[in-house]
Design a binder for these strands. Sequence first.
DNA 1: ACACTATCCTGCAGGC
DNA 2: TGCCTGCAGGATAGTG
Length: 289
Amino acid sequence: MPELPEVETVRRGLAPVMEGMRITAVEQRRADLRAPFPERFVERLRGQRIDRLTRRAKYILVGLDGGETLVLHLGMSGSFRIDEETPGQFHHPRSNNPSHDHVVFHLSNAIRVTYNDPRRFGSMDVVRTAELAADPRLSQLGIEPLGADFNAQALARVCAGRSTPLKAALLDQRLIAGLGNIYVCEALWRAKLSPWRGAGAIARKDGTPGLRARRLAEAIGAVLAEALEAGGSTLRDHRLANGALGYFQHHFAVYDREGSPCPRAECSGIVARVVQNGRSTFFCPVCQR
DNA sequence: ACACTATCCTGCAGGC
DNA sequence: TGCCTGCAGGATAGTG
């Protein structure tokens, strides 16, 4: 799935065509994705004017003028496609098999926004905006790593006292919200920290940040910022070719690079793959300690 | 409270 | 060529 940078890229791609527009019709082509659609899904959206698109962790929040918010999650394989409301539709090669087009939003600007999700791990829900903050999916989320209050101190605080490996801690959305398997691997590599190291070891005994917490916080920020930058350029390119939003090509230092030399010039290590909590971890056993 | 597993689903790559 | 296996960017219910 799209992790935070991909989700933010999708939000930035959708916002200009959706904000301020009215939803004229919704095609809901099945009863569920990962979870059932909410009651009266189509009726609650039809006729609503879209206020603003925001993001919290990997959720896209579509504010509606009637006091409700459409809560979107792309799961592992969700993507959106933007196209004009014209009859002659064209197919995108691969990955956009039209049989996985589960929801189509028709907008007042004659734009059609189609949600495609082969694995159907994504979700769509409609929640009263006033109750959004109390929604368990959002209220349990940890620090926003691109937010103003994310720093070494905040990172040390959530890691302090935990014996679970750093890899698992960084994937835990209740501690830090938005990282996924790729960017956790990339951030740990950048910070030269072993994925096996206990999370608590990056904080001092009193919970204040040490050198490792500072390195890791910097690495997380940098890795996400670079990915966002890559997403931004892909967005511009994609906009010309087709309207597909969801994934973009980005070069990774260690993710999916088992057997390749560690990209750090001064390091002679070879990228290894291990499994932690059932997920692949890619790392350099030489420079990550 | 915490940590770990199994599971939802389809597509694709690799081995035979 | 086809068949089989394992694996994939996530979240969460269930277990110990």
